[in-house]
């Protein structure tokens, strides 16, 4: 068990990471770094310009969304 391990809830799913990381790093891990997405972090919007600055810690909740077809 890594003492640094953190648990994040991303789009309703629990995911584990071996240490804290920032949003930009998370997106790279998820191969979302070049996609058109928007992120809500613990209920607040994180602008694209702040992805590298926003650190993620144990217990954080994220919604990562895309545009899809709809009426």
């Amino acid at each position: 068990m890594f003492f640094n391990m953190i648990q994040l809830i991303i789009n309703g799913q629990i995911q584990h990471f071996e240490s804290t990381l920032n949003v930009a790093q998370l997106l790279e891990r998820m191969t979302l770094n070049n996609k058109r997405i928007a992120i809500e972090y613990n209920g607040q919007i994180v602008p694209r310009s702040k992805f590298k600055e926003q650190a993620l810690v144990d217990g954080d909740q994220l919604e990562i969304v895309v545009a899809v077809g709809g009426g």
Binding site: N11, I64, V65, V66, V68
Partner: peptide, 20 residues
């Protein structure tokens, strides 16, 4: 034109075409 906003599929992102 209207569009909807939905959670992205985790783990299926690589070549998924984007509506935008």
């Amino acid at each position: 034109i209207t569009i909807a906003v939905r959670r992205t599929n985790i783990g299926q992102n690589a070549d998924e075409p984007n509506l935008l």
